[in-house]
Amino acid sequence: MNSMAVGVDIAKTVFQVHYIDQETGEIVNKQIKRAKFLEFFANRAPCLVGMEACGGAHHWARQLTKMGHQVKLMPAEFVKAFNIRNKNDAADAQAIWRAVQQPSKPVAVKTEMQQA
């Protein structure tokens, strides 16, 4: 696994993704439609993906783990400390990206049975 970290702010229809491209050094902060989310990660080398822990995040964490990515779910309170701008999807994704790189105890990903 490479050391690239990706911050993901999930929403109903559009997800915000934040990372730094390792080849170009470009800061990437872009929207991805829900239908294209898994496709986006299927075409990437395994990486560390951070998300705020919520019901939907557990589903996406299971899917990304199947693809070989490492997923770290974090409590919203932990991520909030890293948000240095106004609260919006792009700022939240950046805060998640910052938080996922810090040492912390992640929230365990629940199985489908545990969520049922």
Rank of each mutant, 00 (worst) to 15 (best):
A91D: 04
G56K: 11
R34P: 00
E26N: 13
G7M: 03
A93Y: 09
D89E: 05
R62S: 06
A81L: 08
V8P: 00
W97D: 03
K110N: 07
L48T: 12
W97L: 15
A57P: 00
P106N: 10
K72H: 10
K66G: 02
N83V: 10
N43H: 09
L48P: 01
A81T: 03
H69R: 14
F78V: 01
I20H: 06
A11K: 06
P106S: 11
R98E: 15
A93N: 04
V6A: 05
A61W: 04
C47H: 11
V107C: 12
K30F: 06
L48C: 09
N29C: 14
D92P: 02
Q94L: 15
K80H: 04
H18S: 04
K33M: 11
A108E: 14
G68V: 05
G25E: 04
F41S: 00
P103G: 05
R85H: 04
T111E: 05
G56H: 07
A116G: 06
Q16I: 10
M74P: 00
L48G: 02
D21Y: 07
D89C: 09
A95E: 09
V28Q: 10
M113I: 11
P103H: 09
M113T: 08
Q114N: 09
V100S: 10
K105Y: 08
I10T: 03
G7Y: 04
I32K: 10
C47Q: 11
P106C: 13
R34K: 15
S104P: 01
S104H: 15
H18G: 03
A11N: 02
R44A: 03
M51V: 10
G55Q: 12
R62M: 09
N29P: 00
I84T: 11
N86T: 08
M51F: 11
I84S: 02
F41P: 00
H69L: 08
Q22L: 14
P103Q: 13
D9R: 12
T24D: 01
R34Y: 05
E52H: 11
G7D: 00
W97R: 15
Q115F: 05
I32S: 02
G7W: 08
G68Y: 11
A45E: 13
L38W: 03
Q114L: 12
E26L: 14
E112N: 13
R85Q: 05
K33F: 09
N43K: 15
A11P: 00
I20Y: 03
K33R: 15
Q22V: 13
Q16G: 02
K33W: 09
P106Q: 11
D92F: 06
V8W: 02
R85G: 01
P75R: 12
Q22C: 06
M113W: 12
F78S: 01
I27Y: 09
E52Q: 12
Q101Y: 11
M4D: 01
H59T: 13
C54N: 06
Q63V: 07
M113S: 12
F78G: 00
A61C: 05
N2C: 07
P46A: 15
K66W: 04
F82D: 00
G56S: 06
F41T: 01
A57V: 07
V71A: 04
P103L: 13
K12D: 05
